[in-house]
Amino acid sequence: MSIPSTLRGLIEKRGASHTVEGHITACAASRDNLRFAFTTAEGDVIVAHRADLTEPASWATYAVHDGAALALAPDTDPGGFLTGGDDGRLCRLDRHGEIEELSKTRRWVEHVATHVDAKAAYIASASGKQVELRDGRGETVLKTLEHPSSVTGIVFDSKGKRIAASHYNGASVWFTQPKSESVRPLEWKGSHTGIAIHPGGEALITSMQDNDLHGWRLSDGHNIRMSGYPSKVKSMSFSRTGKWLATSGADVVVMWPFFGGGPMGKPPVELPGMGGALCTRVACNPEQDMLAAGFADGSVILIEPETQRVLPVCLHSGSAVSALAYSPDGCLLGFGTEDGMIGLVDLSAG
């Protein structure tokens, strides 16, 4: 193992790490901020409780999928998680560690997303060309959304009114409301491989096979192009106010401005990097003007965009960061690497 015996950075004093078997495919916090889950390519889900943050020995491992766990989302229930896998199953792992199969298809379940607010709760999962939209319990399929080719990403808008899916030659935007059947196709030739939506609903952004980003201004469908990356953009995250879109794909964190008319014709802002290592994951803090970035050398850093100040979380852990996420309260940061290292840091004051 190339993982050094001691990791340098915030993780020394404020967190813990642990190495499990398999590539870490995703990580996410539960809605109640009390649990953090990591999924692996071996089909396992590792759950750490906030109370046991610094005691990895007490983090629980659940064998959920036969084959890789490909997708992870917080459950609509505050304490649980939803996962999708190679085995075609959409599963719920509840707060008690019970595993419930919500559906099973012949295709890989590659994307899972959830939305909860005072009025409604939805679960969406993508498998092949289909997206299934379910109620918050996950027992009833409200809609099956058909796409012209395989779906490569799904996202709810911040109000849960719309769900958008990326695929070849563009993206499709659907209303979640049951009575509406219509789809808004957003077309742009090429292979779109991931999706993000502006928190204020101003724009929909996709990452593309050809090392760039495409976007549509949602008010009028105007096309936005953002290019110049040396590699594919695999991770995108809007800042909490929607002013910036942070992205991976270069040896620095690349941020596109979404104010004062949007990113058209403007150069992006480049935040610090890790001395040449490719940025592989980004996550904006949902509560503060901070963002986290993971790199190909296994480093994770926090950056304050305004001052460009950098705070190391974990330096040079070895293999590329493949998962990175904040808890909704912005106090927990979790990450995972291709070699199976998982880390969790408490960022709350005190």
Binding site: G22, H23, A41, E42, L70, S150, T152, Y168
Partner: peptide, 15 residues
């Protein structure tokens, strides 16, 4: 190119 193969090979390489 075959987009489905890019996805499938990418997932397989995690195992």
């Amino acid at each position: 190119v075959r987009g489905d193969l890019i996805r499938i090979l990418g997932s397989l390489m995690k195992r």
